[in-house]
Design a protein around this nucleic acid. Structure first.
Lengths: 117, 117
DNA sequence: TGGTGTAGTATCTAAAAAGATACTGTTAGG
DNA sequence: CCTAACAGTATCTTTTTAGATACTACACCA
């Protein structure tokens, strides 16, 4: 009742999307559809297999992505967004857009500082 | 050109909003307007002064919040959102709303699992 | 027979984020 | 003179996150 911040559900959404790789994975699957493990890995230079596996497992756990294993050798595993996962799209796109503006905003602030000095 | 994820600006927005306390601070200032340090601290039970100071400085650095010092004793320092900071509002609100649904979604998945077992 | 591609594990290490605790200076009030 | 309120700093430790590296099984191909 008295100015206390409670029941902040931002963390719920944030927890799913944060990390160096999760937003990249989600945006990639949103835009490119179904992809297999090796394709994901190739599209993210710098990520280790361990990291990729971990991120994918966590997203699967939260019902954001779907993992389909084909029982064949060499193995084939496909990943795609769930319908539920796709509901994250507006948030991700909004952040992407805001981020793009923010880069410019920081540049402008830099110029202003220099002029004032 | 070939399925590589580049120029992902989500991180820019994410970097500003992540952390255990930043979303709480931002939503509080968005909803309650100008607040002083002690009011912020009181509204966030569990945060240490060091943490609060650090988060506020980082948000100020990014031009999300404004810090006004009144030269008096005992000191008085007021924090409020900048116009620019307020542009984060739709993202935060969207995440809050999504998070609220997500809590329910997880509950439903839990029930389904139990029924299947 | 040896190498390649696939989708991973298993260990260990480094770096980043968060938390605990103690400390500062100033002034008003009792 | 002692204490509380305010808005912080300064150190130190713990926890979390990320990265490096090496390893697995199996089939196909030359």
């Amino acid at each position: 009742m008295e100015g206390e911040v409670s029941q902040c559900r931002v963390e719920e959404a944030l927890g799913i999307v944060v990390g160096k790789w999760k937003p990249v994975i989600i945006l990639y699957l949103l835009h490119e559809g179904t992809k297999r493990f090796s394709e994901l890995k190739r599209s993210m230079p710098g990520i280790t297999q361990k990291m990729l596996t971990k991120q994918l497992r966590e997203l699967e756990e939260e019902d954001i992505i779907q993992r389909v294993v084909y029982p064949q050798v060499p193995p084939k595993v496909e990943y795609s967004m769930t319908d539920y996962g796709r509901t994250l799209s507006p948030i991700l796109e909004a952040m992407h857009e805001w981020g793009t503006h923010h880069v410019l905003h920081k540049q402008n602030m830099g110029i202003v500082e220099k002029q004032v000095k």
